[in-house]
């Protein structure tokens, strides 16, 4: 099977290790991975801040970059949700503004092909044990868009539970938002910081050595807060855990 990786701009720029982990993991599972270099950003920062028109070129770019692939695998719940939930809205609104059905058509063409990484593993490949080894105490924070917009449910947990050596510890208040929220983090910095500090303290109280999510943008906030509070808990993307084996430990 051949799939396209939509890595997302945040991962490409700041978390290339996550991208390398996705490639390692999928190739180990017998999947051929392409990284169409025309890809960039899903347009979520623009859209969620109110600049819908500024997100439109990126909708077109996404559709063009991933044309012809049956599966577009996204290691980010938030960016996958942007495509699946908001691209159709952008299309509908453009049509309502009398600009025709082009964007709606593009949205329709990419929505059914866009899958978040854990969805791809569990639903498309049908695996939960990916042969990973990660001998650490880990707590899992379900990030909001994966949890509520995509409905990832138990998929990430089932994958983590099958990792050898990994001790999964409950995160109290796990379903509460970490406070990142894109531009919310700077527009309402005080509230965002308060939410982040509460999340970081909950993470620290678990005694885990790593906090795992399916979204590195949220991790940037959680990890940045942990670091500021002097914690040594590592923020880690689920792909990096799943890519790790006894022979080739990731990191």
């Amino acid at each position: 099977m051949r799939v396209a990786l939509f890595l997302t701009c945040v991962n490409d720029t700041l978390y290339p290790a996550t991208g390398r982990a996705v490639v390692t993991l999928l190739e180990r599972l017998g999947v051929e991975v392409d990284f169409p270099v025309e890809q960039s950003c899903c347009g979520q920062p623009q859209f969620n801040t109110g600049y819908r028109h500024a997100s439109e070129p990126l909708v077109r770019r996404y559709a063009r970059a991933f044309e012809g692939y049956d599966h577009i695998v996204v290691p980010s719940g938030s960016c996958a949700a942007m495509v699946r939930d908001n691209y159709p809205r952008i299309g509908r609104k453009a049509a309502a503004e009398g600009r025709g059905g082009e964007l709606a058509g593009l949205a329709e063409s990419v929505v059914p092909r866009t899958v978040e990484l854990t969805e791809f593993l569990v639903d498309v490949l049908g695996v939960t044990d990916v042969g990973a080894y990660y001998p650490h105490r880990v707590t899992y924070h379900p990030t909001c868009h994966g949890l509520r917009m995509l409905g990832l449910g138990e998929r990430p947990r089932r994958l983590l539970e099958a990792v050898r050596g990994l001790e999964l510890v409950e995160l109290p208040g796990a379903q509460e938002c970490c406070g990142f929220g894109g531009t919310f983090a700077v527009k309402n910095a005080a509230v965002s910081a308060a939410m982040g500090a509460d999340k970081a303290r909950a993470v620290m109280a678990t005694g885990a050595s790593a906090v795992c999510t399916v979204d590195n943008s949220c991790q940037m906030h959680i990890g940045g807060t942990l670091s500021r509070l002097g914690s040594t808990v590592r923020p880690v993307h689920i792909a990096e855990i799943l890519a790790s084996t006894e022979e080739v430990p990731f990191r």
Binding site: L14, F35, S192, G196, S227
Partner: peptide, 13 residues
């Protein structure tokens, strides 16, 4: 309230 992540030596691409 938050540290920034370290910028990697090279982007994924």
């Amino acid at each position: 309230s938050r540290d920034l992540p370290a910028v990697p030596a090279e982007p994924f691409r």
